[in-house]
Design a protein around this nucleic acid. Structure first.
Length: 553
RNA sequence: UGUCCGAUGGUGUAACGGUAGCACAGAAGAUUUUGGUUCUUUUAGUCAGGGUUCGAAUCCUUGUCGGACAACCA
């Protein structure tokens, strides 16, 4: 009955904390910096933070880590909120580290008074010099022994704007010989005369990540502060600050970030792709951003399912993008409406079909969902089928159309190819076929069973649509194993546009929020670039294609 | 030549001293008016050496390999 789903290491920690009475309830937070768009790696973190809180009856704050005004922007704040909501999560409180600037300042003063922080006049180069290296201890700054009074005055002057950017910093006084580089008197406040998107010009000193994040967690009484592995070395400082400040002891736990094949997942690189126009924007359907994936036709359900399946652990990983594709296919198969669209048309003339006649054939909208009903599609003696669905000299197991061979036209009749018409270049211009009148779908009395079923459109009824076919953005699966500029590995064929595909008439009225399966082609969704009379569709993902796979070998 | 983290089929992830399981991918077959879906079956794994133990993926130890760490970024 109860399929004992095993717990990941974070769930184990939480269950232990709940069991031992350390916590009655849990509080998590999702802490994006508003300097870029959210990507599928963030989705993993969102699903974790919000999912854990939901599972254990706690709540999650959305807290923007907005401590660096020069890289941050409200545009990003809005997109981040949209993406989280779209993914299907609700935060308990919308908070900002900048809300705590005054409190954080007081914390810094407390540290100074305890003799645990000092104002340093060293340049950034000098500070870097003093840091030493991972294998060599650092050296003390000449300003390290300033008195508490002097530090207090200097820090107040920093806040008052008496100094230029970079002239002074506030450093924690810990241990310049500490084996953990982050404990070698880290900078905790720096001067930036910059306009902040929320606090305006109220401040010219801003706390560093290490002096904002843990303290914000503590202020919010976050019980489990979950972040990625690169913050492991920061944990000692996180704990040190909380201990010295004697504030609520939030605890930090780290998991391995998501890496995926054939893509990059760093905001810096994604920003570069956008700025250098390798993609059309943050929401380009080839981007691993949530806005890009949404535009591409991914569903929140499929992304959540993906995050669930990839699991959570502490070892580095590289997830096959095929798993993401599996998840979206699995969801879309259940909900997408089936349509027929011919990408590369070749004309089929039914020589024995009454001239000028048109009839309507019924076709199920979704064989996986009877409630989706049926639609009527016009059929006539002049049709288009896919060029690749015909072969003049077919191999053994080719089930599609060939001279003398029978195929069914989906939801319509069985036809046989009698004659191939070519132009002077040898290109096929027309296939002359005969149809079996008694083979009509639903009232087939022909007794004939054919192996292949093709999609088609009626020539006079077809509507032109633009179709955009996306492929992986990069040509190598593991970008971390490459050398040189990652942009050298961009796939030049990541977008193929078919400006005039021919669709069944119902697609002229496609709805922006509906997912479609173009039969035998893939899953598609309307793009925002659509214009009246000229809809544009993005391919979310292809269908699995065993034939293409086996025929390649 | 430092500190920290990690290592289970191709890729992920379980097994908490007691039969190495699941998913994706791969292969074979059945069904199918989508070469889709669905359903069977199947290939393939504990980094290496030593130790503790009746018994080790699990504990100890040494080594190997991978990753992180030297921004006034987060």
């Amino acid at each position: 009955m109860s399929e004992e789903k095993s717990l990941n290491f974070l769930e184990e920690i939480i269950e232990n904390d709940l069991k031992s009475g350390k916590h009655q309830t849990i509080v998590t937070r999702f802490p994006p910096e508003p300097n870029g768009y959210l990507h599928v790696g963030h989705a993993k973190s969102i699903c974790l933070n919000f999912g854990l809180a939901k599972k254990y009856g706690g709540y999650t704050n959305l807290r923007f880590d907005d401590t660096n005004p020069v890289t941050e922007d409200v545009e990003y704040v809005e997109s981040i909120k949209d993406d989280i909501k779209w993914l299907g999560f609700e935060w308990a409180n919308e908070l900002y580290a900048s809300d705590y600037f005054e409190q954080l300042y007081e914390f810094a003063v407390t540290l100074i008074k305890k003799g645990l922080a000092y104002v340093d006049d060293s340049t950034s180069e000098e500070i870097a010099q003093q840091k030493g290296t991972p294998t060599q201890p650092g050296t003390n700054s000449p300003y390290r022994s300033r008195s508490v009074e002097e530090n207090l005055q200097l820090f107040a002057d920093m806040r008052a704007g008496k100094y230029r950017d970079g002239e002074k910093v506030l450093r924690a006084k810990i241990d310049m010989a500490h084996p953990n580089m982050h404990m070698r008197d880290p900078v905790i406040y720096r001067i930036k005369h910059a306009h902040h998107h929320r606090t305006g010009d109220a401040w010219c000193i801003y706390p560093m990540y290490d002096f904002a994040h843990g303290q914000s967690d503590s202020i919010e009484k976050v019980t489990h502060s979950i972040c990625t592995l690169e913050f492991v070395p920061h944990r000692a400082l996180y704990d040190w600050l909380i201990e010295k400040l004697e504030i609520y002891p939030s605890k930090q736990y780290e998991f391995a970030r998501l890496n995926m094949t054939y893509t990059v997942m760093s905001k810096r690189k994604l920003l570069q792709l956008v700025n250098e126009k390798h993609v059309t924007g943050w929401d380009d359907p080839r981007m691993p951003t949530l806005s890009g994936m949404r535009r591409r036709g991914y569903t929140p359900e499929s992304i959540r399912d993906f995050c669930d399946r990839i699991g959570v652990a502490k070892r580095d990983n590289l997830i096959d993008v095929g798993l993401l594709e599996f998840c979206v296919r699995e969801h879309l198969n259940k909900v997408a409406l089936r349509k027929m669209v011919v990408f590369d048309p070749v004309k089929v003339i039914l020589t024995n079909y009454p001239a000028g006649q048109t009839e309507m054939v019924a076709s199920e909208n979704n064989p996986e969902d009877a409630a989706a009903g049926e639609r009527l599609i016009p059929f006539s003696g002049e049709l288009f089928i896919e060029r690749e669905d015909f072969m003049e000299n077919p191999p053994k197991k080719y089930f599609r159309l060939a001279p003398g061979q029978l195929v069914r036209l989906k939801s319509a009749y069985i036809i046989r190819c009698d004659e191939v018409v070519k132009d002077a270049n040898g290109t096929i211009t027309e296939l002359r076929c005969t149809y079996l009148p008694e083979s009509r779908s639903g009232s087939d009395s022909s007794g004939i069973n054919v192996k292949g079923t093709l999609h088609w459109v009626s020539a006079q009824h077809a509507v032109p649509i633009e179709v955009r076919l996306y492929d992986r953005l990069f040509m190598v699966d593991d970008l971390s194993a490459t050398e040189g500029d990652f942009k050298e590995y961009i796939n030049p064929d990541s977008l193929k546009v078919i400006p005039n595909a021919l669709a069944e008439p119902s697609l002229a009225k496609a709805k922006p929020d509906e997912h479609y399966q173009f039969m035998r082609k893939g899953y598609f969704i309307v793009d925002a670039d659509s214009k009246p009379g000229k809809p544009v569709f993005n391919r979310t993902v292809t269908l699995k294609d065993m034939w293409a796979k086996s025929s390649k070998m």
